[in-house]
Design a protein around this nucleic acid. Sequence first.
DNA 1: CCATATTACATGCAATTGCATCTATGGACT
DNA 2: AGTCCATAGATGCAATTGCATGTAATATGG
Lengths: 150, 150
Amino acid sequence: MGNQPQIRTTTEAWESLFRTQVAVMRRLQQLPEFKKLAMREYDVLFNLSNCPTGWTRLNELNEALLISQPSLSRMVERLEAKGLVRRRTAESDQRGIEISLTEAGAKLQQEIGREHVRHLHEMLAPRLSEAEFRQLHELTDKLRTGLKNS
Amino acid sequence: MGNQPQIRTTTEAWESLFRTQVAVMRRLQQLPEFKKLAMREYDVLFNLSNCPTGWTRLNELNEALLISQPSLSRMVERLEAKGLVRRRTAESDQRGIEISLTEAGAKLQQEIGREHVRHLHEMLAPRLSEAEFRQLHELTDKLRTGLKNS
DNA sequence: CCATATTACATGCAATTGCATCTATGGACT
DNA sequence: AGTCCATAGATGCAATTGCATGTAATATGG
């Protein structure tokens, strides 16, 4: 397998990845779809829409986001008040709560998602080739899944 | 050159990159070096430390960060109050202000930076080979620099 | 089975953030 | 120069966030 990477190599690769993420995010945030709902809130709806059973535990959801547990707790509260999300206590563990999209939430997610995907593609597609995007996908997948067990 | 990439390819690559960034950030945020200074504040010091002249315009700095202009304005105010940063009005443009690290700020940046780099390397190095990190670096660089002109 | 530790989420409260707006300077056009 | 528009940052204020902590439920160890 490959050699043990140098410190400079790993940190500079991370730096580049991070700055790229910032650059893309800055552009995305300004787009009209995120005036309907803040990006962080959309991200919650998106995560919920990806869950196979439809219901997700709060702590599980929290792991996919950069906000603190109390912040998520209150964000879910607000999303519930807006009618985009539902909650129930988990059957298997009375401490836990599970969350799912309401119909309105699913609809809004799809609506924003469609525009988001279109803008994302417009922004990114001209920069790399199909093969390069696939390569990027593979590398970041490998990096992320490697992290899970640590 | 490469083919025009498919929508799925670009968006899934982005999704993977983004989730990877979240996963790494979550781990980084908990490390002891970021109890001295919040990560967002460290990022400001880091950006200042990278500037060749030592002085950076506030709006320029803002472009490298995900926070809003008023937030940055106040963050700089706080960093100044802590003695980590200095400001002056720009000579060429009386509206603008320029910022630089104080000695204490430079020292703290280096101190946190050292630990940060070490932890980052420990976290990432085992996941990819030297060649793969270089590839990742190239791809994200290409993606980011392509964005600048749009 | 009881005491204790741990986990999941909620809540009080202070700090940070963003939005809208304000002030001041600079630039452009006549 | 004078008017108008754009840009750089600052500020009022409400909303969001995080930290510390609280409550309730579950796991663990004797």
